[in-house]
């Protein structure tokens, strides 16, 4: 069965890159444009893993992660944070919010798939 990945990112460019990369790697990809939409589609997307950006309008990545972790059904889904910030403070906040791991942008396809495989069976 194909693994389902939910990606949350406000940048059209990054969304497209994620889509191409993930589809090529054999994942089924569902995309949302910000944290609010991410939480809205969570139930229907029923993802095996989530990849989210941090800086987004309406609801940022931290808020989104907390929202997912509050959802009983998805609170143990692996969440990877996609961020250009390599600084530790942002990672820590993401971790405290409940992120599983992170991918530093700019990602290349292998790194992204590696990271997803690290957190999914």
């Amino acid at each position: 069965m194909k693994k389902r990945v939910l990606t949350v990112d406000d940048s059209r460019t990054i969304r497209n890159m994620l889509l191409v990369t993930l589809n090529n790697a054999g994942f089924e990809t569902i995309q949302a444009e910000d944290g609010v939409e991410g939480l809205e589609v969570l139930e229907t997307a029923n993802p095996d893993v989530i990849v989210t950006d941090i800086n987004m309008p309406r609801l940022d990545g931290f808020g989104f992660i907390e929202g997912v972790r509050r959802n009983d059904r998805y609170r143990a889904v692996p969440i990877l944070v996609l961020t250009t910030e390599s600084d530790a403070e942002k990672k820590n906040r993401a971790r405290q919010a409940g992120a599983t791991g992170w991918i530093v942008k700019p990602f290349d396809p292998t790194k992204l798939i590696d990271a997803i495989e690290r957190v999914t069976a």
Binding site: R69, R75, A76, V77, P78, I79, R95, G98, A99, T100, G101, R118, V119, T120, A121
Partner: peptide
């Protein structure tokens, strides 16, 4: 709780 898995 954060979605990591000892197995993996």
């Amino acid at each position: 709780a954060k979605g990591n898995d000892a197995t993996l």
